[in-house]
């Protein structure tokens, strides 16, 4: 069996054990304003940030997205008619204009937002929609990726994704185009 062959070959060829050092993540700690850095990074990643109170979310959404027909929301503050069941085929979501989800937490150094299975009804949703809105608690922001994984801790869900900005590509002559195969826009509600 190839498994045994590969393992045997590795055992023959590997160097003697080099201990795993405990990385000192403290040395990467910086004195930063997490909120302003996070906002800046979301912008640089091609997204936008709206700072508001939870209570304002619904009004802002209805004002900003008047011409969208298919909307899907998993936040308590905003309940458009269109909510569907989790049993739908993922391709059923192909015409979504707007998806609104809670992010678990945000990362200041890169504007990334952690969205695990438990914040989703279907994994495809944040990717297939034309416009994505993520609601993130200001309190939840962490400084960097080391803190992010401390925050995640022992993960026991099936899937999770860091989302930083809308989808993008620069594959044509290095000119950046926002909106590749995933969403064309990302808006973060920082509450």
């Amino acid at each position: 069996m190839s498994k045994n062959e590969i393992i045997a070959s590795i055992r023959r060829n590997k160097p003697s054990l080099i201990e795993l050092e405990l990385p000192d993540y403290q040395q990467f700690r910086e004195d930063i304003d997490t909120v302003s850095l996070f906002k800046q990074q979301v912008n640089e990643a091609g997204g936008s940030v709206i700072e508001c109170n939870r209570g304002d979310i619904e009004k802002i959404l209805s004002d900003n997205y008047q011409n969208v027909s298919e909307v899907y929301s998993l936040i308590d503050e905003f309940n458009p008619l269109d909510n569907r069941s989790a049993d739908d085929e993922p391709s059923e979501y192909k015409n979504l204009d707007l998806v609104v989800l809670n992010g678990k937490f945000g990362v200041a150094e890169n504007g990334a937002i952690w969205v695990p299975d438990s914040n989703l009804s279907q994994r495809i949703i944040p990717f297939i929609t034309r416009n994505l809105v993520l609601v993130v608690l200001q309190m939840s922001l962490v400084a960097n990726m080391h803190d992010a994984y401390t925050e995640i801790g022992k993960f026991s869900e099936g899937f999770g994704v860091f989302i930083a900005g809308p989808s993008k590509t620069a594959d044509i002559e290095q000119s950046l185009v926002i909106g590749a195969q995933g969403p064309l826009s990302l808006t973060v509600f920082l509450v």
Binding site: Q41, E44, A45, V107, E109, N110, G111, A112, R123, F127, M145, F155, E157, G158, F159, G160, V161, F162, I163, A164, G165, P166, S167, K168, A170, G182
Partner: peptide
């Protein structure tokens, strides 16, 4: 790779859908 602080998506797969 590109000078971005992180790619737009870093997807962590643990279990099949």
């Amino acid at each position: 790779a590109t000078g971005q602080p992180i790619t737009a998506y870093s997807s962590h797969f643990f279990k099949p859908r």
